[in-house]
Design a protein around this nucleic acid. Structure first.
Lengths: 134, 134
DNA sequence: ACTATTGTACACAGACATTGTACAAATATC
DNA sequence: GATATTTGTACAATGTCTGTGTACAATAGT
């Protein structure tokens, strides 16, 4: 039986390390790959794996805890909890729309074809909603 | 005859102002809404419109100039030029994949339904490739 | 020629990201 | 049960990033 899925970050990507950790763990949480009850690696363990300071991982965990994904307790660790997502706000909708537009434009500017972009989108969609809301 | 399309940024969105300007202008450039030969507003004019410092706009313009979209000259202004986009690198492909995954997961976590997400994706696709590469 | 316009250079202030270090709460060991 | 270990947290220090104030350089207009 495998341990929890691994996180890999890309230093030198511009994006802050803690934000990359948050983004990747959130993807695993949304997809259900990290189900309620799962215990995450300790902040120090994951920090060593990624080559960053444990406070950087701690900040990522705290961010996810504030979103309702994790429960954090000293001495125990980080555990995934049941979570009822919020209702979609128009704020979130607009934010998503603008960020997606920027991302697609950047991809096109970098030479990715519309076909390749659509393919990637569909692949990620299957990955994220793997049997959740088909 | 209308002037060039307007840019609107959202301070308090977390994203840096100059990055928002870059992202929105790049979207207009990719879609062809800003064609070669078009003259952009001066850095000071756009800065006043957006409520930021002109050096902030200048940084955005310089970023787009380095990507090959604009030609900048003192006294003249910023003009859109013909641009041959690069071939897609695997680096760009991976970058896009990870950013898109993070964005989709964030949207899902914020309560957006898969249906709403797909709808937005298709709408933006039509907007960005309006008659370019169908 | 001279003035106005326009992008640029550079130093400064504040916010943010990461780290070093020490601490507090829970658990494991004996 | 006392004690050591494990685990998340608090906080200051440092370097980087963002945005601004101000002055300058190059082009255009008169």
């Amino acid at each position: 039986m495998p341990g929890p899925p691994v996180v890999r970050i890309d230093l030198g990507s511009g994006a802050p390390a803690y934000a990359q950790i948050v983004a990747q763990l959130r993807a695993l949480l949304v997809s259900g790959a990290l189900a309620a009850g799962t215990r995450l690696p300790t902040v120090r363990q994951l920090a060593v794996d990624l080559g960053v300071h444990h406070n950087t991982v701690a900040l990522a965990y705290r961010t996810l805890a504030e979103e309702g994904w994790l429960e954090l307790r000293r001495g125990r660790g980080a555990v995934v909890v049941e979570r009822q997502g919020p209702r979609a706000s128009s704020r979130a909708q607009e934010e998503f729309s603008r960020r997606l537009e920027g991302l697609l434009a950047k991809a096109a500017a970098d030479g990715l074809s519309p076909k390749a972009i659509v393919r990637e989108f569909e692949a990620l969609g299957r990955k994220l909603w793997k049997g959740k809301t088909p």
